[in-house]
Amino acid sequence: MESGIGNRNRIRYSASDRVFFLINGIFWTVFMFIIVYPLYLVCIASVSDPSAIVAGKVIWRPVDFSLVGYNAVMKYQEFWSSYLNSFIYTFSSVIISIAVTLTGAYAMSRPRFPGKSAINMYFVITMFFSGGLIPTFLVMKDLGFYNNPLVMVLMGCVSVWNFMVARTYIQTNIPEELYEASALDGATHFQYFFRVVLPLSKTIIAVLAVYYGVAKWNDYFTGLVYLKNRSLYPLQTVLREILATLQVDMTGDFMTTMSDDAANIAEATRIANVSKYCIIVLSTGPVVILYAFMQKYFEKGVMIGSLKG
């Protein structure tokens, strides 16, 4: 690999190759701009003056630096209580997800034990057949999951896909010799799993944490369908009413909070407008931070999973 790159560097590029590099450079400049600019715009608008945004002056950098939006969001109670809910749901759910996925994936990574292919079939079938929204809803309701915060923790906490990725990871990254050596020493599966497999699975644990954590944090639909009590809502379900709508609801909690700081309705609408940018920054922040921290493992782990899975 190393020498391959070295060799290519020494090669003198032909004219057509140099044209290609030019095109590639332009291509990535444009594409990176398209990816980054919307995110950048949200960030700079969140710290700009509300009237500058409405006037269309905020394009390349913050205009009339102001924290009016963040101040307003600070006072917005429902945002923070649902923020806390989401943290609790996500944290507990990810712990359960990783525990169930990893133990199961280890068992399924063992070369043979009776009934393994049947169990594997049992998992794969769920990828192709699902009950669908309504039958699932009715069955869950019968089981007592309606308006029960447990549904937010448990639903979707194991995915077959992640299960397969974890199994492939264990199969390809933990040498079989380790198992044979442990088995000779009389180790049981439990002992082998906890003392050998678990310490060697940091990468896949990081990948699972990102996948499960992000999916849980970003999910608004489960809360929308299964929760009746607003105080149980996760963040995204609350945000749906604020962000994903054309009109600002003048009677809602959101607007009442915003108008506390405002002199009149027009001013309140402008503050509400800038607050939306702040809300996006605050709600997406944890996810991006998690990704940034796990990124080192993430790259490696995902490649392994996708290549063999």
Binding site: T101, A107, F113, I119, S130, G132, T136
Partner: peptide
């Protein structure tokens, strides 16, 4: 021990995937 390790996943899919099929 292997069955026990894979049991939570089996139970999970039973409740959240197979029971809805009954619905």
């Amino acid at each position: 021990q292997l069955y026990l390790l894979v049991l939570p996943a089996i139970i999970y899919f039973f409740i959240f995937n197979y029971l809805p099929l009954y619905g």
